[in-house]
Design a protein around this nucleic acid. Structure first.
Lengths: 205, 205
DNA sequence: CCCTTTTCACCTAGGTGGTAAGAT
DNA sequence: ATCTTACCACCTAGGTGAAAAGGG
């Protein structure tokens, strides 16, 4: 699961219009990275590996009315990441050790009628795309940064079992430092979890 | 949750047509029932209580293509029942001690385009309704029949904690008796579980 | 040496009927 | 006497990072 969760709120929409909200993740550059332990920093390690299949993730509660989007925050807490190119569960497939930018798409749906259909090609729909550079992260299969691990243990309810008071102190110290911009993703066999901090942001139409 | 689960398969559909599959539950008669313990049987106990709000439950994977419906069984394992008229979670609301008939609706969707919309009024859509009288049941808040309890304990994975070998013997004995037609539903605070046996059935278009 | 996969204990979240207490 | 509710122990299902094992 992607964590911290991508959360977006909207304003300035038409109340009766129906909208789809989608998330995708695109490469930031054409590079592969490696982690230099002795320097505690990321280094470029050559050209990017061949890109895995592209997946566009519609929010499970989509479509929304403009009315709904005014009131509620759209939270992508259930989106899952994987490094398994053969994934058949609709997870977003990424290359480990590459940098990524999540994007949010707001699509204006045509009819208020009763017909349905998944959105496969964004470019053929009237839409707007919102990008928040502070959500850029590096995909990994094991955390390279103890502060990331601490952040996730202390803020993800499923990791409660690993919390302890010594850790909490360290985390509280780093929490006020704002960004932890060296984000990282852990790719489990077929799961991945995010770890750059993602703020609640506004997308004015 | 409704258990045993309503499961339907379809044949004879147009592969490219898109369909919605929905479930609702309607009263069988205008009566209220009571259970006479000393007779171990149901008696009419007057006119039906005022009906609670009507709810139409779309299958969560709906809409389907005709193609999909040919291949897979449509299973309503997640539908929930309640006796709470104020329910806000979209559960189907029933009166306890009344008899009910589940129904399956197959709606032909108009466009293959990309617009969306929940079906609120069945009668305004081209559809067919399928009814299986063997799925009629009585809604209850506590089981009146030990065979029903045993059936559910032995066949619902969540009740595994109540299984024991003495019960198993009794259940195996009754299992071959086919129908247990005196179905019953247990209404928990905001949950309900079914208990008439529902067979996998075919709805030829 | 660096990265990935597997397995594990420990959690969250929520579906079971039993049981006792409450309501009519 | 009959039905309903609240709470409980016991399950399923699956999300956590740690640690060890595997791979190039």
């Amino acid at each position: 699961r992607m964590f911290p969760t991508v959360r977006v709120s909207f304003s300035g929409l038409k109340a009766d219009q129906r909208y789809a909200v989608l998330l995708d993740i695109v490469p930031v550059d054409n590079k592969r990275y490696r982690y230099a332990y002795h320097k505690s920093s990321w280094l470029v390690a050559g050209k990017a590996d061949p890109p895995p299949p592209y997946r566009l993730y519609p929010h499970p509660d989509s479509p929304f009315t403009g009315e709904q989007l005014k009131k509620q925050v759209v939270s992508f807490e259930k989106v899952k990441l994987t490094n398994n190119e053969m994934d058949k569960q609709g997870q977003i497939v990424l290359n480990s050790m590459h940098r990524y930018q999540p994007r949010i798409h707001l699509v204006c749906l045509k009819d208020n009628g009763s017909c349905n259909g998944p959105i496969t090609d964004l470019e053929s729909e009237p839409h707007r795309t919102y990008i928040y550079p502070q959500t850029i992260f590096t995909a990994v299969t094991a955390y390279q940064n103890q502060l990331i691990t601490k952040l996730k243990i202390d803020s993800n309810p499923f990791a409660k079992g690993f919390r302890d008071s010594s850790r909490l102190t360290d985390f509280e110290r780093c929490k006020s430092n704002d960004t932890l911009s060296a984000g990282a993703y852990w790719m489990h066999t077929s799961t991945v979890k995010t770890s750059s901090i993602i703020y609640l942001t506004n997308a004015n139409s």
